[in-house]
Design a protein around this nucleic acid. Structure first.
Ligand SMILES: [Mn+2]
Ligand SMILES: [Mn+2]
Ligand SMILES: [Zn+2]
Ligand SMILES: [Zn+2]
Lengths: 145, 145
DNA sequence: CTGTCATAATAGAATTATTCTAAACTGATT
DNA sequence: AATCAGTTTAGAATAATTCTATTATGACAG
């Protein structure tokens, strides 16, 4: 392991610790590893199962239950958002900003659509006593032909 | 049972039979009952479990497996559409036309938004090789305060 | 009508995603 | 170093949905 790699790893770690502390979450071993995997690099969309597989594949010992707990804690802390596109599977998104999604039905993958690219107009007044929490747009795409 | 009620029931039945035949589905006892419940009266949003409960409550003998099968067959035949709003529950919609939804997160209920009221603009070109299948908008609402 | 056959219905088992439980562990603080 | 609330974990439990193997039933030919 080169000096640069060691330094980059240390930086990613420090950043993950800071992020957890800021969210009021104790930076435990598994939370740290999950945070590093989720928040190092570009935004991503993960499934509990696939994040667990990835982290376990990287040699870290975490249970699937902890992955579920952690994803929900991160979501509660505003570090992640849930995306509902598939009745059979829950997705978590590291991009918590204003944006929407393409959903590739065949692949089961999500692609971001920037929030300033897309707009929804003509949403009626919600029934009285109710407030709009959010407006989700899912553009479902399939292979042509 | 009055003469009018008998006639209305017979009409609803004939209509259900016609609808199934048109869809190429054999009008069996349970398909007929389910079709009558689904398509008599205004459009509705149902869950397999709740439709099963309703039909069984009305004294009809149908299994939950058959309700699932039938909902999927109806969907395949274009008589229903599926709506994904809740990771834990699948909804089926008798309104197959162009429209969107309010989703009342607390109640777990859907309310239609007419397709000509709402518009989505600025959807980017999908990645090459992919075609847009449909654009779903879900307006999530919660109790105020 | 009746017999035949492809289709459909059914109970119950199985599967899958997710949550719960209760016990063992560990990060922070003293 | 001792303490303890917060955390992790395996495995059991739950809930929605699908599968399987068997039984029943529409459609229709004779
Ligand atoms: Mn499910
Ligand atoms: Mn869920
Ligand atoms: Zn996203
Ligand atoms: Zn609808």
């Amino acid at each position: 392991m080169s000096k640069q790699m060691r330094e980059a790893a240390a930086a990613a770690n420090a950043q993950a610790i800071a992020r957890l502390r800021a969210a009021g979450l104790r930076p435990t071993r598994q939370r740290l590893e999950l945070a590093r995997h989720l928040f190092t690099g570009p935004d991503r969309h993960v499934t509990a199962e696939n994040l667990h597989g990835e982290v376990v594949g990287a040699g870290i010992k975490v249970s699937l239950a902890t992955v579920y707990n952690t994803l929900h804690q991160f979501t509660g802390a505003g570090l992640l958002r849930q995306v509902v596109v598939d009745a059979a599977r829950g997705y978590f998104d590291t991009n918590t900003g204003d944006h929407q999604h393409f959903f590739l039905e065949d692949e089961g993958t999500l692609i971001d659509i920037p929030g300033d690219a897309i707009a929804v107009s003509g949403v009626p007044q919600p029934p009285s006593g109710l407030r709009i929490d959010r407006v989700d747009v899912v553009v479902r795409v399939t292979r042509e032909n």
